[in-house]
Computed example of a mutant assay.
Amino acid sequence: MNKPNKWEINVGELATGQALTIPVYQFTPENPSGPSVYIQANVHGAEVQGNAVIFELMKQLENTHLNSVVTLVPLANPMGINQKSGEFTLGRFDPITGINWNREYYDHNFDIEYWYTKNQSHNDSDLFSAFRQTLLSSCQQRLQNPWGISTGQRLATELQILGHQADIVFDLHTGPKSCKHMYCPEYAIDAAQYFSIPYVLVMPNDFAGAMDEAMFCPWWKLSELAETQGRQLDVAVNAFTLELASQERIDMNDAKIDANGILAYLSHKGVITEKVTPVKMDRYACQLENYKKFYAPTAGMIEYLAPLGEKLSVDQPLLSLLRMDQYGTKDEYQHISLDIECIPILHFASAAVHQGTELYKVMTDVFLLEHYPPLKK
């Protein structure tokens, strides 16, 4: 039986001096030969289902033939998790700066072309090792900034250091009210067939501050740069964000399904010896640029009508909008539809909204994943 080692890392301090720590669990086989794995959950305070998935993964990893180091970090953001207002967990934004906790990761500011020129004589293995060390050193420099860094930046950088040590990275999230979906980089699109998730957002090589981008973007850029110099390099790191349905929810049966999906991928990558078969299902995808947001045209009370994860035709209502202050006028109650066929993926949690509230996110220009065109080289 495999038993994980456990330790804690310090990710900040409260005003009264208490240290904020997060638990780290690591499975380490005697002779690791497969790609290393890092999995974190609950960076946003209300998004707790990822902890249940990590729990189920750990239980199963204890009884597998493990070929790789696997590091797991549940409860990754103690500040967000403990940010309560009445019965609700807030914890999506740093209350000090207002910045999304998942937009604080570090975009390494070194000249990758200059770095490659200096290191291109290395063989692939040594080149990858040197590049990984450069990313880790860059994170350490951020932590040691003599001017200091924000609370959110410190948390993100500590997590990023753990992630940069792995070859496969999962960041587990949920939506407000959501169906399951995942973010997958274009170069790793074949990976999506292993997870128990029906909707896939195909990501370009652009960094916008999120954990998955912080993990894969540097390696993708390295591969693209090498190709311009006539050298074929694999993208050495795969990173995914899995959105495990809705926030403020623990469902252990559902956690087992998603843990098995992750294990199916880890089985495919040789992390575990056991063969885990992916769930057979249709998987639909769209380019990230075609993942659209719909904002409230006015304030009011919203009835969310469009079922999540089901095709919505142009003539079907997305939502209804109730305006009690407009009673007796044409604006008192109205249905709102979109002018394009789509699949609603998530919606805002509250029925009472301000004008401009992000109400729905929908996939447009959707295609079956098995019909995804091959990448152009």
Rank of each mutant, 00 (worst) to 15 (best):
I96T: 13
M203L: 13
L90F: 06
G152E: 10
F367I: 15
I54K: 00
G309S: 01
P29G: 04
C139S: 10
A306N: 11
Q26T: 15
N2C: 07
Q165D: 11
I257T: 15
L244P: 06
S267I: 10
L159F: 02
S68T: 09
V366C: 08
K361F: 00
V314T: 13
K377R: 13
F294W: 14
P297V: 11
D94G: 04
S121T: 12
L57T: 07
D339V: 02
K275C: 07
S68K: 01
E224H: 12
F207G: 08
F110M: 12
F131W: 01
I345P: 05
A226R: 06
L338S: 10
T157C: 08
P317T: 06
L322F: 05
V235W: 08
A226Y: 14
L159N: 06
Q120V: 13
A245N: 15
S246G: 05
V362H: 13
R103I: 12
T298E: 10
D325Y: 09
S121N: 10
I272G: 00
I340P: 00
D234Q: 05
M324G: 07
P29I: 10
T21H: 09
I250H: 12
F27Y: 08
A46G: 05
G152C: 08
Y199D: 03
M301T: 14
Q18T: 02
D339G: 02
P78T: 06
D190H: 12
M203P: 05
Y360L: 07
S313M: 15
L162P: 12
S137M: 13
T97M: 11
T151Y: 01
F207W: 12
L127N: 03
G270Q: 05
V169Q: 09
I39Q: 02
